[in-house]
Write a protein that binds this DNA or RNA. Structure first.
Lengths: 331, 331
DNA sequence: CTGAAAGCGCTTACAG
DNA sequence: CTGAAAGCGCTTACAG
């Protein structure tokens, strides 16, 4: 900037004004500055700028999710990026791997880079540490699940309603032994979907069989193994409700490997690619991860532009997509 | 920081030293500083720090890909994050949507936030604009495809070899009318995979039929439509080679809709979820996107720590996964 | 070992 | 409209 000022023969202040699009500057002078900028290949340094600026915005926000490579969170990420882009803001991202210390490290690393706001998909455990971040002026919005011991805006899917619809679908076909395979019980989404499962059973007067409620390792790792074990047991289920995308994929593999795909009904939570091509095609409750991201970013930017109401919880609708696997009758 | 210094009764310089882990400071004094930091909830401002620091590192790098929500790039992203994390560096990401102005905007926005390095999956068109960024001291590595009119390290899949292996597999079963459905012809990966297709045909003395070589809209959008059109034409192909993940999914849908999945052989480039469960299971050439990301980040950090050799091109192997669809014989 | 002072690249009252 | 000067939060020679 100093070089630009020298070359254009103006003061630093003038260069700053031109670079920031301040119109109260002599056009001829502005032109000289613009030329010098082009000639020198000068680049405005936003970090220095925001250091001195009154509003102190860094024009970047942070995102902490379980895993950026999980298609669900990848879509959430994209939804957030789209909104951020409209605000000329960039997104810094990190994967917590559901690991509490990693979540803390990440949020602190993001704060240290002075992000204006944070969108977090909270790990199990509590997020009370976020209170300190917020006290420092960083706005925080939760995504996919609410925080614990820390109240903030949150955008989530209609987990209870979706799970209920999925299980209702199976009950309507006459199934009574319906297994629930969910992610770790500590997870909000897992709990909510289990609640929906129970609600549906209750509505139909079906008693829950604890032997049919199973949880996988982190990230739904052993979904296929659990499905196998359930089906190999005495008095096996006649239908499966898998409460997460990776578990759904694992269960479909297990059903096909065992040759049971036409005998055991199956509904999954979260849509997966090729679900309509598998035979039978897979009935799912589809979430709208991109909309979840979009909405979360909108809430964040509202806060950043001064909104100061109480924490809001936004529920994004889900949709039951009937394709066949969920409509198989019991034997 | 001023407040911390005041509370601890020391100078700013001392606080800075303690915060940065400088050991040449009186332990008792250091303790007072640490206490004050805890009491005040002080957070170190990395952006201000790097502004003044000699080495000027911001401990963040930028990533520009086509779309962070594409599972391929989401996995690349994760590979990069893993390496960056070991260097205590965060990743800023943006989606170019294969749109040249958007690529420029993004790289400039990233530079303005003073990233130390950039990993870019270049859009069609040329990347000569990146030369200016590099002149400013930002290291640049390309991923998935090399840049044009700009030479830089690049990490790519073995596109030619993989496509060749895919088409060889079909030729070995006796197919002679093999269609190629690829992404836009401007894309490096599309060109390379077409080259591999041609190489395989040539090796077997099969003349190319231009009517069987098709390109989709951006992002493989109409892959299913093109597959349908090919199969509906007179003298249709007996086998399909789909050169990208979304096109593969589209083609599988088309084959199933038409009921041709057991008659028309099919090999896809890039693995897709549930490929092994579809009937017939889909034979694919699997890439290793996470390894691509990992390797790209490693090259970048080598540059950032001073490596100054000529541009390198790293080719990540691919693997043909035989599952059934590619082994169907011609009628 | 410690602190006063200069300065990183920028913005912003303030005076002219 | 323009510029000289102070200062954002930090680091780093330099002197003590």
């Amino acid at each position: 900037m100093r070089d630009v000022a020298a070359l254009a023969g103006v003061s630093l202040a003038t260069v700053s004004r031109v670079v920031n699009g301040d119109l109260r500057v002599d056009p001829e002078m502005a032109q000289r500055v613009t030329d010098a900028v082009a000639l020198l290949g000068y680049r405005h340094d936003l970090t220095a700028s925001s250091l001195r600026r009154a509003d102190r915005g860094s024009a970047s926000i942070g995102l902490v999710v379980e895993d950026v490579a999980n298609p669900f969170f990848a879509a959430v990420h994209r939804g957030i990026e789209d909104v951020a882009r409209r605000h000329r803001v960039l997104v810094l991202t990190g994967s917590s791997d559901e690991h509490p210390p990693r979540e803390r490290e990440l949020t602190e690393a993001l704060i240290a880079r002075s992000v204006d706001g944070l969108i977090v998909s909270p790990v199990p455990g509590d997020q009370s540490h976020l209170a300190r971040e917020r006290a420092l002026g960083v706005e925080i919005v939760c995504v996919d699940r609410p925080a614990r011991l820390f109240s903030a805006d949150a955008v989530v899917s209609d987990n209870v309603g979706g799970a209920r619809a999925a299980v209702d679908q199976l009950l309507a076909r006459g199934h009574r032994r319906i297994a629930y395979i969910g992610d770790r019980p500590e997870l909000f989404t897992s709990q909510q979907r289990l609640a929906g499962y129970r609600r549906a059973l209750g509505d139909h007067g079906v008693a829950e069989d604890p032997a049919l409620v199973r949880h996988t390792e982190p990230r739904g790792a052993n979904g296929d193994g659990i499905a196998r074990a359930l089906l190999a047991a005495g008095d096996p289920p006649t239908a499966l409700f898998t409460a997460q995308n990776l578990i759904t994929i694992g269960a479909v593999k297990a059903l096909h490997d065992l040759g049971h795909q036409h005998r055991i009904a199956h509904v999954g939570f979260d849509d997966v690619p090729l679900a309509e091509v598998v035979e039978p095609a897979i009935t799912v409750v589809a979430q709208d991860p991109r909309a979840i991201g979009t909405r979360a970013a909108e809430l964040l930017f509202e806060r950043l532009s001064g909104h100061d109401g109480p924490p809001r919880q936004v529920v994004i609708p889900v949709a039951l997509i009937v394709r066949g696997s969920g409509e198989l009758p019991p034997p």
